[in-house]
Structures are given as C-alpha cells and as structure tokens.
C-alpha cells in the first residue's frame, strides 16, 4: 500500500518544512534588504543550536513536561540563544559585511566573504565540540500515531506549533508596526526609504537580529529532532536558499511557503529516488523556479 508511505512522507515534509521556513526567512530578508546571498546564514542555525546546548549544559533541559522530552528550561535556553545569535549575526555584519558595504564592494565580494565567514563559523564549532553528535536530553520519546501509519514524535508537533506561532507573530510585526513597515519599505527601495526618514543602519541591524534569532530557533529544533552536529546548518544551505527564492525574495510569506514546499519535495522525493540524492532536490527546485518564474511565487517582477 502506497498511502501510508506517502502519509509519513507528508508528515515528515511538513515538520522539516517548518524548520527550513524559519531559516529561509532570514535568507529572504538578507536577499531582499541587504541584497546579497549570505552563504553564512546557515551557520547561524548551527550556532543557535550549540549556544542553547551550552545553556542547557548548565541549567539542564528541565524535567520532561507532558509527552515532551524537555521542560520549560529548554525553551528559555532557546530564547536566550535566539537573542545571542541575533547579536552574533549583527556582529558578523559589523566586522565584515558592513565594512565591505561601506567600501562599495560588489555583491559578489560579499558572497565570497560570506563563504569565508561560514567556514570560520562552522569550524569554530568543530574546534570546541568536535564532530560527534550532541543531544539536549537523553529522554527517549515514544512516537505517536496521528493517523494510521503516520508516526510523529510529540516534540515534533510542539516544534511545528511553535514555529507557526513565531511566523504569525513576525507577519503581524511586519504588517502592523512602524518598524515592520520600514523593513518592507527598505526591501523595495533603500533610497526611497531614506528619503522617508528611515535610518538604513537601524533597519539593517534589526534585520540581522531577527534573522539570527529565527535561525537559532531552527537550530534548536534540529537539535531536538534529533541531534546537533557541526554540519546541521551547512546541510540546509541549499534548501534555505531554494525556499527563499522559490517563495520570492524579500517575501516573508514566500519564505514560509517555500520552506514547506522544499521540505515536502525533499521527503516525497525519497519515495522515488535513493536517499543519497536527497541533497540535490532543493537544487532541482531552485533550477526549475529560476527558469520558469525567477521572481518566485510571491515575488514581484522588477
């Protein structure tokens, strides 16, 4: 029977998709507002996950609450990690990208610098923690059968709910608040935004902090389901970019929809191709969208 397998693939796809969406939002912001492809963004996921690990190492993940494998302490750790990762993202901008921007460096110089920053960030994690997998908690979880033959862990459902909440909150912020509108204005035209009195550096700073915080959440979620290792961010690099571009650069809704689509495509593709090629799926999606509709689903043709 093929349906149960598809059901499971759909469920896995949605869960992975939520995580990709969180990371893709940051990518789409940097593509839209700073206008460069930040190859180092995926490392923010890794850093977020590991920073939370440090906090958990001191404070513990908390006694398992209900069906979950952790307590509120892990969430608190994730929040702190989000703040710290957001600041780290801004820090990397101040140290590297902003200097290049001020010098009028071409976007491609920035991409190369991002590549270099990514290498440094990833290997700093290897330096401190090595390559072995790490876990937030040693609690074993029982999978829950949602519908016949579709099994998910309670942690995964919680993560999905939390991710969706974050996305809704962010959308409200972008559409209703002054600052959110300023961000959207900058994404369309930095020059016009300045002429409206919007301070570019303030918006840039906020963008980095938000992007970093979201990435940290994604990293913690990956670490929960099921583990942390230094490559978790890098493994998602193509998926993040595929999702952002598929959805339309600069569009929050686009990044979210794109994230879920990429997650679903990756998991559904496992039904037909060997798992070894899973990493090529986001790239194929990317190629298709760039050929068929380069501005993405929600993007505007410039």
């Amino acid at each position: 029977m093929i349906q149960p397998v598809i059901g499971q693939a759909l469920a896995d796809g949605i869960l992975t998709g939520a995580i990709i969406a969180l990371g893709a939002i940051g990518v789409t912001f940097t593509l839209g507002i700073m206008r460069f492809a930040n190859f180092a963004h995926s490392e923010l996921l890794t850093w977020g996950g590991y920073i939370a690990l440090v906090i958990v190492a001191f404070a513990g993940p908390g006694t398992p609450t209900g069906p979950l494998s952790f307590g509120w302490q892990l969430l608190a750790a994730a929040l702190v990690a989000a703040v710290l990762t957001g600041l780290a993202a801004w820090g990397v901008d101040v140290l590297v990208f902003r200097r290049l921007r001020r010098r009028g460096a071409q976007p491609l110089t920035m991409v190369f610098a991002a590549f270099g920053a990514a290498l440094v960030m990833r290997h700093l994690v290897v330096l401190v923690w090595g390559h072995e997998s790490r876990f937030y908690t040693r609690e074993l979880q029982m999978a829950v059968e949602l519908v016949p033959s579709v099994r998910v862990l309670p942690d995964q459902i919680f993560i999905l709910g939390l991710a969706l909440t974050v996305m809704v909150a962010l959308q409200a912020f972008l559409t209703r608040s002054r600052t959110g509108m300023a961000m959207r204005a900058m994404a369309e035209s930095p020059a016009l935004a300045q002429v409206c009195g919007i301070e570019v550096e303030a918006v840039v700073r906020l963008t980095w902090i938000i992007s970093g915080a979201l990435a940290a959440f994604a990293g913690v979620f990956i670490g929960l389901t099921p583990q942390l290792h230094p490559e978790i961010g890098f493994n998602l690099l193509l998926s993040l970019f595929a999702a952002a571009i598929l959805g339309g650069t600069g569009s929050l809704t686009g990044a979210v929809v794109g994230g879920f689509l990429v997650g679903l495509a990756e998991n559904l593709s496992l039904l037909v191709i060997s798992p070894g090629y899973k990493g090529a799926m986001p790239f194929l999606l990317l190629l298709v969208i760039l050929i068929v509709r380069p501005q993405g689903i929600f993007g505007e043709r410039s």
Partner: peptide, 13 residues
Amino acid sequence: VFTTLTVQENLKV
C-alpha cells in the same frame, strides 16, 4: 512610491 505597499502604507511610511 513603494509599489508593494498600499497607498495608505506609503503615506504612513
């Protein structure tokens, strides 16, 4: 003008 924003949002910005 910001084409992706509404008229009202343009004025607010």
